[in-house]
Amino acid sequence: MDRAQKAESIEALKGVFADAGAVVVTHYMGLTVAEMTDLRGRLRKEGAQIKVVKNTLAQKALGGSIGEEGDALFKGPVAIAFAPDPVSAAKVVTEYAKGNDKLKVVGGFMGQTVLNDQGVKALASLPSLDQIRATLIGLVQAPATKVAGVLAAPAGQIARVLKAHADKNAA
């Protein structure tokens, strides 16, 4: 890799780190191509990606912004999982790591905050952005449904009373 390619890779990583809600750092030693492809597919379904990175290039792209603790994450064979949503990449990678001992979650970072492996697991346990949106929409719609039910109830009662009188008069 020549200097131009390295500079291009560093700029691409800077863009990834700037746009990602959270970055999950993993060790992937021993994963087969099929397992890595499966993981990529699962991440893609959630709008996330995984990328194998050179440690020195990732550290240069970060420029020391996350400190020595963050630089320490980039040791050994490293792949980073990232997405605009802070939860989705962590959720998929953590779930996949439970079923596959070869993938190991080392840690991660959100902006300037460095997370250890337990922090990434805690992040993965949070609801995703889509789940939060669905919950909020449900909460907003519930009162409207109840109001409509309350308003319709008196009209229904009047209709039943009138029907009862009509039936009584017809008999």
Rank of each mutant, 00 (worst) to 15 (best):
residue 115 L to P: 02
residue 16 V to N: 05
residue 23 V to G: 00
residue 56 T to G: 12
residue 45 K to G: 08
residue 19 D to Y: 01
residue 104 K to G: 12
residue 74 F to G: 12
residue 111 G to S: 11
residue 89 A to F: 09
residue 84 P to D: 14
residue 18 A to P: 12
residue 12 A to W: 05
residue 68 E to S: 14
residue 52 V to Q: 06
residue 45 K to E: 15
residue 72 A to Q: 08
residue 23 V to A: 00
residue 116 N to G: 14
residue 29 M to N: 13
residue 100 N to W: 13
residue 32 T to Q: 06
residue 109 F to K: 05
residue 52 V to T: 01
residue 95 E to D: 15
residue 92 V to I: 14
residue 13 L to P: 03
residue 74 F to A: 09
residue 40 R to E: 01
residue 76 G to Y: 01
residue 14 K to Q: 13
residue 19 D to T: 10
residue 95 E to T: 15
residue 74 F to W: 12
residue 72 A to C: 05
residue 25 V to T: 02
residue 11 E to C: 05
residue 62 L to R: 02
residue 21 G to W: 04
residue 41 G to V: 11
residue 70 G to F: 09
residue 100 N to V: 07
residue 63 G to D: 15
residue 114 V to I: 07
residue 97 A to D: 03
residue 26 T to K: 00
residue 96 Y to H: 08
residue 76 G to E: 04
residue 14 K to N: 04
residue 89 A to Q: 09
residue 66 I to S: 03
residue 63 G to V: 09
residue 48 A to F: 08
residue 32 T to M: 04
residue 18 A to C: 11
residue 22 A to P: 04
residue 40 R to W: 01
residue 60 K to W: 01
residue 17 F to L: 03
residue 64 G to T: 06
residue 69 E to I: 11
residue 117 D to H: 04
residue 27 H to C: 07
residue 98 K to S: 12
residue 104 K to V: 15
residue 25 V to C: 00
residue 65 S to K: 15
residue 107 G to L: 08
residue 36 M to K: 07
residue 103 L to F: 10
residue 32 T to N: 03
residue 95 E to P: 13
residue 38 D to L: 08
residue 36 M to G: 10
residue 17 F to K: 08
residue 71 D to C: 07
residue 40 R to N: 02
residue 69 E to C: 01
residue 21 G to L: 07
residue 83 A to I: 09
residue 48 A to N: 09
residue 26 T to F: 03
residue 50 I to N: 06
residue 107 G to V: 00
residue 107 G to N: 03
residue 43 L to E: 03
residue 47 G to D: 05
residue 18 A to L: 13
residue 70 G to P: 01
residue 14 K to C: 08
residue 51 K to C: 10
residue 12 A to V: 12
residue 55 N to G: 05
residue 65 S to E: 14
residue 115 L to S: 02
residue 100 N to G: 06
residue 76 G to T: 07
residue 52 V to G: 00
residue 111 G to N: 04
residue 66 I to Q: 03
residue 112 Q to D: 15
residue 114 V to D: 02
residue 74 F to P: 13
residue 85 D to S: 05
residue 98 K to D: 11
residue 66 I to G: 08
residue 88 S to K: 14
residue 115 L to D: 04
residue 114 V to H: 09
residue 94 T to L: 02
residue 42 R to Y: 07
residue 111 G to R: 10
residue 11 E to Y: 00
residue 57 L to D: 11
residue 78 V to G: 01
residue 87 V to C: 03
residue 69 E to V: 13
residue 44 R to Q: 07
residue 42 R to F: 03
